[in-house]
Each structure stands twice: as structure tokens, then as C-alpha cells.
Amino acid sequence: MPTKPNTKALKGLIVRLGQEPDLLQAYSNSPKEVMLGAGVPSKQIDTIMSGSKREIENLLGNAYFVSHIISTTKT
């Protein structure tokens, strides 16, 4: 069984991107550099740079997420 990658640095960076507009702007200009600076491992950077939403969701561990509170039609 493959070991689960440690995504702490990546997840921490994503949270900061949502909090710091300047960092988000820097990321928009040079995502690779910002990720390197935040200590994200190169393999994970490659996944993000691939743009594949499916692979990125897998890397982040979102695959198992129902992710939405679905309202039933009538309760």
C-alpha cells in the first residue's frame, strides 16, 4: 500500500492563499515559486501544476468528501 503523502505544507499554503491577497497575487503570477517557498514537495507541485482537478483532489484527500450539506426536498 502506498504511503500517504504529507500534504501539511501544501494545505497550509492553500489556507494562506485564501487569507492573504498579496500572496494569492504572487501565486497567480508564479505558482511554482510560491509553492517552493512554502516548502511544498516537488512531486506535489507537479500535481498542482498539472491542473488535473481529479489528481489534485486525490492529493488533498478530498476524494472521500461528500462535501456538501444537501438539503432534502421536504423535511
Binding site: 500534504t7 501539511k8 494545505k11 497550509g12 492553500i14 489556507v15 488533498l60 484527500g61 478530498n62 468528501f65 462535501s67 456538501h68 450539506i69
Partner: peptide, 14 residues
């Protein structure tokens, strides 16, 4: 919690 992403769970852990 009920978050929309595992990133949200990590953030709340912190």
C-alpha cells in the same frame, strides 16, 4: 465540522 474540503479539516485542526 462539516467542511467542503480536507484542507478545511486541516485548518480546523490547527
Amino acid at each position: 465540522s462539516l467542511m467542503s474540503s480536507a484542507v478545511g479539516d486541516s485548518w480546523l485542526d490547527e
